[in-house]
Design a protein around this nucleic acid. Structure first.
Length: 500
RNA sequence: GGGCGCGUAGCUCAGGGGUAGAGCAUCUGCCUUUUAAGCAGAGGGUCGGUGGUUCGAAACCACCCGCGCUCACCA
């Protein structure tokens, strides 16, 4: 350890020296606890001139202004920052210790609240205790607030790679990212409250699965030594949650990490968070109203509004959302009826709109391509696209009146898909047939085709009630509600290549 | 995977064949209500890595590593 210091830069070396000096003077650099009875936020909101308010607060030193025998500093706690004032006359030998402290050190102070000449509410320190010595320099930025109250930050810590790799530093110095993650937590908490209040049971199902299913995606593989068998990290929770509906629960949901072994970009991280909900005796019509109401209530509870700006667009979560059938949406763009048109006619229509096609494209594939290129970008206000071709939806129930379609909807907001739901397929014979169709697609080279799950079929054969199911991508919902354009900015530790 | 861009001090960045730069941060001295505190001085670098071209490379070339944007793939 001692030898390693030779490799450290002068800033870090200096801090190791300060650490030793503090120890030599009898100050413990890493003590065990400190009694906190207030916060920066509370003090700033509750200070009244003339009152003698005594407080104990703790936080990280973010600025220091030393003036010989007195100093000002700001400390940052969970709620924000507050200025502290230290005077040699008041704290004696602790002032010598303070001279050895740096930006980044964590301290506890006890003192009384006052207002400085320039009007800033501050804590006049009577006692100072070092709580943790920081050995690395923080990439600290200076801030100033102008006359209009706008915060101007100089040389803000901005390197994306460092921010993602060292999120702990990012969280210390960039308050906005902190706010985004607090919002994320509140959104999830609000959703959980909404689901719990309706009596649905939060459950946990396997992450390690012998057969993966519930979505079209390539999985991560792992190996269980004792069983000497391949296991897959789940790509979805769907098939296990439906087993629980077979088991008789009156509505179950799970908020979980799913894993998909695919490319990464600003809307895809290899592990991501999904909420899936299954409610017996309901259908997709009911689920649409449920989703509308849930997003309305989350918006109001977390943000106090239903109007959002996303990516320069104005989004409004009024109920009800627009509904448009997949067939109709494509007819509007191409004049084609996807149900009656041949695959060649569809390819012609696609090429006419500048969409490339290839010989091995399936009809469902072309339809998906036309939809995502021509229709999806225009779905700015919350919209349900309903009734999908059966080929695209091997786990959804056939439409009660429209041949070749299933009762499925996806919710689109700001041109992005945020949820997927259907009347769940509960006919075990039809489900077996759909798995067999998937097997043929797999044999034809589709690596993302669903695997047949015999145990799931067995469960359906015992009988599953008619059920409505829903999946919501939490990361993308948070992006939408917090106006973030990259999924990496709503995941604390996004996937990165290992450091060299 | 393709295209474009980036990588220089702890942070933010300039420099573009001829001794490695600035602001903030750090250190020393002065300073007991400052706030991008101030004044005076000082220290700090594998210029992402490896090869090459050249008398001489941070710079030019090649390859590699990492990151960003974008397209493709992908619910």
């Amino acid at each position: 350890m001692e030898n390693n210091q030779q490799d450290l830069n002068v800033l870090i070396k200096r801090r190791f020296e300060e650490l030793e000096e503090l120890k030599a003077k009898g100050f413990e650099p890493f003590p065990y606890s400190f009694d906190v009875n207030s916060s920066s936020e509370w003090i700033l909101n509750n200070f009244r001139d003339g009152e003698d308010t005594s407080v104990s607060i703790a936080g990280r030193i973010m600025t220091i202004r030393r003036m010989g025998k007195a100093s000002f500093a700001h400390i940052q706690d969970d709620k924000g920052r507050i200025q502290i004032y230290l005077k040699k006359d008041d704290i004696g030998e602790s002032y010598d210790a303070f001279k050895l402290l740096d930006i980044g050190d964590i301290i506890g102070v006890t003192g009384y609240v006052f207002k400085t000449k320039t009007g800033e509410i501050s804590v006049h320190v009577r006692e100072l205790k070092l709580l943790s010595k920081s050995l690395r320099p923080l990439p600290i930025a200076k801030e100033v607030t102008d006359e209009q109250g706008n915060k101007i930050i100089f040389d803000q810590f901005a390197d994306k790679e460092l921010r993602y790799r060292q999120r702990y530093v990012d969280l210390i110095v960039n308050p906005e990212i902190r706010d985004t993650f607090i919002k994320r937590s509140r959104i999830v908490s609000s959703m959980r409250k909404f689901l719990d209040s309706r009596g649905y049971l939060e459950v946990e199902t396997p992450v390690l699965q012998p057969i993966y299913g519930g979505a079209a995606a390539r999985p991560f593989l792992t190996h269980h030594n004792a069983l000497n068998t391949t296991l897959y990290l789940r790509i979805a929770d769907e098939l296990y949650l439906k087993r629980l509906i077979v088991g008789g629960f009156n509505g179950v949901y799970e908020i979980s990490k799913d894993f998909r072994n695919e490319g990464m970009d600003r809307t895809h991280n290899p592990e991501f968070t999904m909420m899936e909900l299954y409610v017996p005796y309901k259908d997709y019509e009911w689920m649409m109203q449920f989703v509308e109401q849930m997003l309305y209530e989350i918006s109001m509870e977390v943000f106090g509004k239903i109007d959002f700006e996303y990516n320069g667009l104005n989004i409004n979560f009024s109920v009800p959302w627009r509904r448009l059938s997949m067939v109709e949406s494509i007819r509007e763009k191409t004049g084609m009826d996807i149900l009656s048109a041949s695959i060649d006619e569809l390819k012609g229509a696609a090429r006419g709109k500048g969409i490339e096609t290839s010989a091995d494209d399936t009809k469902a594939g072309i339809i998906d391509e036309i939809f995502s290129t021509l229709v999806q970008p225009e779905l700015i206000q919350p919209t349900f696209i309903i009734d999908y071709p059966v080929e695209l939806s091997p786990l959804a129930k056939r439409h009660r009146s429209k041949e070749g379609l299933v009762e499925r909807f996806e919710g689109y907001v700001g041109g992005k898909e945020i949820c997927n739901a259907f009347s769940e397929l509960n006919d075990p014979l039809d489900q077996r047939q759909r798995f067999e169709d998937q097997s043929r697609m797999r044999e034809a080279g589709d690596q993302e085709a669903h695997q047949r799950d015999e145990d799931f079929l067995r469960a359906l054969e015992y009988g599953m009630p008619p059920t409505a199911g829903l999946g919501i991508g939490i990361d993308r919902l948070v992006m939408l509600l917090t106006n973030q354009s990259s999924i990496r900015d709503v995941i604390f530790f996004p996937q990165m290549k290992p450091e060299a």
